[in-house]
């Protein structure tokens, strides 16, 4: 079985933004490789990924969302570039297809998140 790559984004030094990275380091699932990314730009380095794992505001449980569900920012300085920008951009030029984003609520229980993420990743129809 081909291993599926899960890119885990966040900032390890900011508690509310570190959960995806912590889970990516700890979760072991057969058939999945978890790759830690600390900068949105790192997505440029990857084209053959299947999932993105990141924390998300305004959700109550671990959810599967798509690029279309993300709200775009207008950019002014180099600090305004976020993961959403690079995903939209790479989709626009056909470098990636529709991406499945596993969104974890901010400040969510880590164990609960791990179980819900595993359940999503192991769905047969994904």
């Amino acid at each position: 079985m081909k291993t599926k790559k899960v890119l885990c984004f966040g900032n390890p030094f900011i508690p509310i933004d570190s959960l995806a990275i912590e889970i990516g380091k700890e979760l072991k699932l057969k058939g999945f490789e978890f790759v830690i990314c600390v900068s949105p730009q790192e997505i440029i380095q990857h084209t053959n990924f299947s999932f993105i794992l990141d924390v998300c505001e305004n959700i109550k449980k671990v959810s599967l969302i798509g690029i279309k569900d993300l709200k775009a920012n207008t950019l002014f300085t180099l600090h305004d570039f976020d993961l959403n920008f690079f995903l939209q951009l790479m989709k626009s030029i056909g470098r990636i297809d529709e991406v499945k984003i596993i969104a974890i609520p901010i400040n969510y229980d880590k164990q609960k998140a791990k179980e819900e993420i595993a359940k999503i990743l192991q769905r047969k129809n994904l």
Partner: peptide
Amino acid sequence: FESAIPMAKQYQKEVFRAL
């Protein structure tokens, strides 16, 4: 264009170059 995202569809070559 308002941003690089709508620009990317029309100017793919430039966006590839940038990336």
